[in-house]
Amino acid sequence: MESIGTNAAAIEVLLVEDSPGDVRLTREAFKDAKVHINLHVAADGAEAMAFLGREGQHVNSPRPDLILLDLNLPKKDGRQVLEEIKESPTLKSIPVVILTTSESEADIVRSYMLHANCYISKPVDLNGFLDVVKSIDNFWLSVVKLPHKTRE
């Protein structure tokens, strides 16, 4: 069980987000990250599954250490993606952080029922958003031990 920093390899983070604005913001926020992060982006649910399954153009993609998942996505919906990830024997161990504008109770409950690791509502203001991303960085990438990369 190696901790993230020791092996100096970058953390692979998959951001599944359809809004380019939000993608850019996230990237900006991670600039101050403590750890070197490779941010991969999938713009919709289908692309996210293709990336995770290493299909098509993603055949050489790495397995992410963390997935940031928006719920409202075109093509395949984020909820569907969550379900599929958590049902897949190879993918279910990857922590999934739901990062979405929805604050609805129903969505929160459903996400946790589908075994999301945590649920974060995107703050409406910039600073709030930046703080959240920093928290994610602090918590999930520093404090928390991520599962050791299994041989694939």
């Binding site: 939000d22 913001l25 504008t101």
Partner: peptide
Amino acid sequence: HDLQEPLRMVASYTQL
């Protein structure tokens, strides 16, 4: 709900 999103963009980037 849907109005939130573009609004966030406007607000966030202007703040940025």
